[in-house]
Design a protein around this nucleic acid. Structure first.
Length: 785
DNA sequence: TTAGGATTCG
């Protein structure tokens, strides 16, 4: 059985090689060594014509490449086959086959210098007891296991195409070629009339060719899904551009695309109804796959949502669950891949009625879907996508939503405008192996499980609804009922705005009106600090100011004489960096006992803002202080005097008269102090500033329009104003609420009604007198929130 | 004709 065809099943040969044979590496082949029980395995890269030697003996030469040692400079060897074995092999062996040879004789290669192959060649013949095992991945001829019953199965009747290697391209020619995709832009709408796709190919000559392909029919552009795919182009025009060859579509251009995975079925993707695809072509694809596998760096499996990091560009294979228009230049895609992003992800606020997709599914998957905002040129394609389709989105950019305190970092997903780096969207067919795998995985996801693991955030902020009935009542309310409700004075009847505008102040009214617009549009700008004593409104200080004040406070080193008193224990250390900063932390005791960290109030000297924030996560509260000669004292009141959770508490500079820190010992004497900010403020002589929403609503009712101020700590939005600046979820929730109250881009007729109480009041100064209006005893309806 | 690879405004 000197020549044997082995059937390959799932990458392993059905008939194993004889067990006494051991694999030999090319590098270990040396003259004078015993290779009796060794075999050499590799892929055939060349086969020459069968010839007869001068003495009439048949002769066949092939070149074998050792795939396991491709990194070596010399990784191929000539194999010379003599006699009957030469004839047999010539019928069976084609380039691209994998063969194993044993029982060979090693001899010096006379051509080594010129062909750059191994210094020895192998000689095989039946007489010498040689054996050659031929592995064919090819399906059709595998029924014939044993030579000589083997029948050559293919007889070509199609026109013979000539394929030009990429290093032999000439300007002005129209050629056929094969290549491995090294880069590509999925088809996109060009600025002209056609779709465009840019594809960069490479082949074993290691020459690159960038092709710009145009077609009015997107289907006729190559269906490339990932780098490493293999393409065959027919009738591509070669021209020189910027000193390099480039390819461009010419009349009659046609393409086939193949999965580049070694061992995958060789099935062309094409829109051509008729195409030649024979054994020879199959071999080429298989050869290119193997070449690419060892010569190109093709990145591993694509990233899943669970792998996503705050800042990167990546390709995502996913299913479309929902989509919505956002504005003229951006569009929202809600997608999932069955894995959960390990970071909180942003939710793009959109109107419920603009969100397309199965509401129940959107709700069920709310913890697994991510919002991808696509821009500009991608909007048109995104709009046309069908819900449920499988997509690959190329070069999605993730970015951290806020650089503020590190714990509210949400991840945003953007598909920016343009086509750089192949940025774009491609619909994958259900037959795609990655889609099949994804589908199976999605089906295996236990939705009950992922709903259990939902964080408190999602239910509140998702923007979808808990059930269909909720959704319906929401829609109904938006159309008919008021999106706000009154918390008192239900007995009053409505007054028209026209009447209010012509009446004297002060008075109170119940009104029914529509919110035509509001200010500020950037909702975080609506947060102010309010002093209820002097009634002043202040901007919330910038986080950087806090850092500067803390830095300023480090000028005074902690005074060790103030450490460890009856009501606090102190620790102090010096940082290891060149600044040698001294930090002191004073743990406030209660009833002379240290408490659990989560119940403990700290005072800190010399810390940075970051360090203070870290401490607030573990401890009940942190008070930044500095040392004087005889006591600790609060910092400048531009800095928060207390930090609890994510909230900074400020005092009014005008109304506060700070008392010595030891005043706190009065609370510390309690057994279980609650450390309420109001209580701490009071003993420290601080007039606490409260966070408040200040907004101006322009209300209309058909009889007139008036501006009414909303002044709200938390009642109107059901959101504490103190928490909104540090909580992106709440910001989105508020944005959703405002979008319901005043849906962007809608005509006046389609705006929802608001029922409100307003009161008018007079503001007079030397120059003028004006009547103002303020909303009160009104709240956003529960089912709108 | 278009694009001719070469990220990040939103």
């Amino acid at each position: 059985m000197p020549v044997q065809l082995l059937k390959i099943i799932k990458g392993k040969s059905e008939t194993p090689l004889p067990s006494h044979l051991l694999k030999e590496d090319l590098i270990h082949l040396q003259e004078g060594f015993d290779h009796t029980n060794k075999y050499l395995q590799g892929i055939i890269t060349h086969s020459y014509s069968l010839t007869k030697l001068g003495d009439g003996v048949d002769f066949f030469k092939i070149v074998l490449q050792d795939l396991d040692n491709l990194c070596l400079q010399i990784n191929s060897i000539n194999i010379l086959i003599y006699g009957k074995m030469a004839k047999d092999c010539a019928k069976v062996i084609r380039h691209g086959d994998t063969v194993a040879v044993a029982g060979f004789k090693l001899a010096k290669s006379p051509t080594a210098e010129e062909d750059g192959r191994h210094g020895c060649h192998l000689e095989l013949s039946e007489e010498a007891g040689s054996a050659i095992y031929v592995h064919k991945i090819l399906g059709k001829c595998l029924n014939n296991i044993l030579f000589p019953n083997f029948i050559v199965p293919f007889q070509s009747v199609a026109p013979k195409y000539v394929y030009t290697p990429l290093n032999h391209l000439k300007d002005g020619t129209i050629v056929n070629l094969y290549g491995v995709v090294k880069f590509f832009k999925p088809p996109y709408v060009s600025k002209g009339t056609d779709y465009c796709s840019v594809v960069t190919l490479v082949d074993p000559s290691n020459v690159k060719l960038t092709c710009t392909l145009f077609s009015g029919n997107v289907e006729s552009l190559p269906k490339i899904y990932k780098v490493g795919d293999i393409v065959r182009f027919h009738r591509i025009k070669i021209s020189e551009y910027n000193g390099q060859m480039q390819g461009i579509t010419s009349g009659g251009f046609a393409s086939l695309t193949f999965d580049g995975t070694v061992g995958a079925p060789v099935v062309p993707r094409t829109c051509s109804k008729v195409y030649t695809f024979m054994d020879e072509e199959q071999k080429t694809v298989e050869y290119l796959r193997i070449w690419a596998a060892s010569n190109l760096s093709i990145s591993g499996p694509a990233a899943k949502l669970s792998d996503v990091q705050p800042t990167l560009f990546f390709d995502l294979t996913c299913q479309l669950v929902g989509k919505a228009k956002v504005d003229g230049s951006s569009f929202l895609l809600k997608v999932w891949d069955g894995t959960k992003c390990s970071y909180p992800t942003w939710k793009v606020p959109v109107e419920a009625r603009d969100l397309e997709g199965e509401k129940v599914l959107l709700h069920q998957l709310r913890n697994l879907t991510v919002d991808i905002l696509v821009y500009d040129n991608h909007v048109q394609l995104a709009k046309s996508l069908k819900i449920g389709s499988f997509l690959r989105i190329y070069s999605i950019h993730t970015k951290q939503a806020s650089a503020d305190s590190e714990d509210v970092s949400q991840i945003e997903f953007h598909l920016h405008g343009g086509t750089c780096y192949g940025r774009g969207i491609r619909v994958l067919p259900e037959s795609n192996p990655d889609v099949k795998q994804l589908k199976a995985f999605l089906e295996s996801v236990d939705l009950a499980d992922c709903q259990n693991m939902e964080s408190m955030s999602s239910l509140e902020l998702d923007g979808t609804f808990n059930s269909l009935s909720d959704l319906e009542s929401h829609l109904e309310r938006c159309q008919q009922l008021s999106v706000t409700v009154l918390t008192d004075h239900q007995d009053l009847s409505n007054t028209e705005l026209k009447t209010i505008l012509s009446s004297t102040a002060p008075q109170q009214y119940r009104i029914r009106a529509k919110l035509r617009t509001y200010k500020p549009q950037k909702l975080y700008q609506s947060i102010k600090l309010h002093c209820s004593k002097c009634n002043s409104l202040l901007e919330v200080p910038d986080g950087d100011d806090f850092d500067l004040i803390l830095q300023g406070a480090t000028v005074n080193a902690p005074n060790p004489e103030l450490h460890n008193t009856s009501w606090y224990d102190s620790v102090m250390w010096t940082t290891q960096d060149e600044k040698q900063r001294k930090i002191a932390i004073h743990f406030v005791k209660c009833d002379e006992m240290l408490q659990q960290p989560e119940d403990t109030l700290l005072m800190i000297e010399g810390g940075t803002a970051k360090e203070v924030w870290k401490l607030t996560k573990r401890f009940k509260g942190v008070i930044p202080v500095r040392s004087t000669e005889d006591d600790l004292e609060l910092l400048d009141l531009s800095a928060p005097f207390l930090l609890q959770g994510k909230i900074k508490y400020y005092g009014c500079k005008q109304c506060s008269t700070p008392k010595p820190i030891k005043s706190l010992s009065a609370i510390a004497a309690e057994q279980r102090p609650s450390w309420e900010p109001t209580e701490i403020a009071e003993v420290l002589g601080i007039e606490l500033l409260r966070y408040v929403f200040i907004m101006k609503f322009t209300l209309v009712d058909g009889t007139g329009a008036l501006n009414a101020y909303l002044f709200d700590y938390e009642k109107f939005f059901h959101i504490p104003a103190s928490e909104i600046l540090t909580n992106n979820f709440l910001q989105q929730k508020m944005q959703m609420t405002m979008n319901t109250l005043c849906p962007p881009g809608r005509k006046l007729d389609d705006l929802p009604w608001l029922e409100c109480f307003i009161k008018s009041y007079n503001v007079r100064d030397a120059m003028k007198h004006q009547v103002y209006y303020q909303i009160f005893d009104t709240t956003v309806a529960e089912d709108v929130v």
